[in-house]
Amino acid sequence: MAQGGGGVILASALTDFTDGVRFIFQARESSAGTVQVGGLNEVGHMAGNHLLVSSLAVAIAIAVALPIALVLGHKGRGEFIAVSTSNIGRAVPSLAIIAFFVAFLGTGFTNLCFALILLAVPPILTNTYVAVRQVDRDLVDAARGQGLSEGQIIRTIELPLALPTIFGGIRLSSVNVLATAIIGPLAGYETLGTPILSLNVYGFTGAIGAAIVVALMTLVADAGFAGVQRLSTPKGLKVVKGDRRRMRFRPPSQRSAQSP
């Protein structure tokens, strides 16, 4: 493999990738030659499982974190909790979280799901909290002055204005969860991580195939949430982009030099 130089490496890499793609669509013999592996059926099943556990985890994380963060943000309390959750969430490696869950609570779908929820909560919690805090307090005061109840203020003012940032948090959580669900098989649940973790059965080709599917899945999820994030931006706020552009020409004394 080494003697042929770059061309050969590229060619062999290309073969690896096409084989990986073929694994997705066509079943083939396992490494030991005992069973048939791969093909749309099996890969589809694994991808379905992968999506199921991931979306369930994110949905529950939203259901838990969103109301808490909305209320905390509305009241301006618990800043410490909201901020340190995300710091801890970032500091504790996701593999360590899963490992602790599996080791101490056991394997299985529920436990895996719990671990993923734990992983998904911090970005949603922090983003929501920060987004609500950033809503203009004068606006909230004005609404209160017009007789809106606290609940109405949250629902009709803070939530809509915070929505883009909230979706930013959901987007981050989803990508994290989809990525971490790969190690689901270690918790006894079949996901797209199965071919990767059972290399001896599925072979390198299976791992590449699964990696391609997972990568595409997260890219699509990321792009989808980015779209939602953009759509959820209230119209009035989108002008900001144009404004910023104009700002670059504005206060002349604050601009950088115009040297030739």
């Binding site: 290309l14 990738f17 990525a179 391609i212 997972v214 990568a215 990321d222």
Partner: peptide, 18 residues
């Protein structure tokens, strides 16, 4: 940021052919 989105496990495998 697109590269960042790719799960690390997938990335580590996708880099191996090269």
């Amino acid at each position: 940021s697109a590269l960042y989105t790719i799960p690390s496990i997938a990335m580590f495998f996708l880099l191996q052919p090269l």
